[in-house]
Simulated assay, not measured.
Amino acid sequence: MYSAMTTDSRRPWKKNLYENVDYEDNYTDPSFLQDLQTNINVKFYTLPEAIQGATKLTNQMSCITGFLIVFYLLFYEKASPTDILLPSGLATCLGYVLCHGRQLKFTDLIEDSKTLLAVLIFGYIFSPLLHKLTDAISTDTICTMTVFVFILNLVFHDYGLDVAMVSKTISLNAEIFGSICLASRLSSSYSAFVLLVQSAIFFVLYPIFTARYWRPWYMGPIFIICCSFLYGISTEGFYIYIVIIVFINFVCPLIFVYQQKYKRNIHGPWDEAIVDEASSIDKEL
């Protein structure tokens, strides 16, 4: 009887810490969970959407694979630098025309040509310096650093997501550093110059083209090219490349879509308060 009267005599519980002196510290009133909401603003993705998003990652992985194939051809002298430079230059010109289309102006063409010419001239002049830049470092260390920076490139690359992890600066610097490391292992400064040009094509120009006109099937040509070269270089590398691409591009989206049913985000009065600036200004006015 006494405990019941004591309970009834308590003041009503409020969501205010300083007014609940009559209640235990761990007391929770039933009204506290009335504002509980689940899965607010949660987006559920379809399988085609998930596959399209994964394709952007595998496309970047194919870019790195293609660049490493070019390095292999130059390092083991399977192809001359000129044989690599001319086709890639033609492909770059074709991509430039496709990017601009009918909007291409003669003045823009002249300015872009000046920029390209300046980059090529300075790159050719400084290629002997870059070629000898890491002579004192062992090849094993160079390979380890290259793998590390290319992983950084994959992690921080811009895949079209507005997240804090995306950093174009870190991604681009990692690509440049890895390219210089590999260029220093080549036999001549001209080969190093060609490899640096390929680095600009794979990691600067091609991402600009895909970001502007991205379609999932764009990955098809570079995937086929990488497969054809890898099959001639190493069958083990060929199968590993295919397994990784298929796993990331199809298996991971299937797992992701299946696991979406377990999404459960809860929102309630315990969340951090968000000030609605618009309504606050209206009230002051």
Rank of each mutant, 00 (worst) to 15 (best):
R11G: 12
Y18E: 13
E24D: 14
T28K: 12
D29V: 05
P30C: 00
S31E: 07
F32E: 05
Q37Y: 04
I40W: 07
Y45E: 09
L47P: 01
P48S: 04
A54Q: 06
K56G: 02
N59M: 05
M61F: 09
C63T: 10
T65N: 03
F67Q: 00
V70N: 00
Y72Q: 11
F75Q: 05
T82H: 05
L86S: 03
L94I: 15
G95T: 14
H100S: 11
R102D: 10
L104K: 06
D108W: 13
K114R: 05
T115W: 09
L116F: 06
L116V: 03
L116K: 03
V119H: 07
I121G: 04
T141G: 09
T144M: 15
F156V: 05
H157L: 03
Y159E: 02
G160Y: 02
L161Y: 06
L161F: 07
V163T: 12
A164K: 14
T169E: 11
I180H: 00
C181A: 03
L182K: 00
L182G: 00
S191I: 00
F193M: 10
I201H: 13
F202T: 04
I208R: 11
F209V: 15
T210P: 05
R212E: 11
R215G: 06
R215P: 04
R215F: 05
C226I: 14
F229R: 08
I233H: 03
T235F: 14
G237R: 00
F238E: 07
I240T: 09
I244V: 11
V251L: 09
P253K: 04
L254N: 09
Y258K: 14
N265G: 11
E272Q: 12
D282I: 14
K283S: 13
E284C: 15
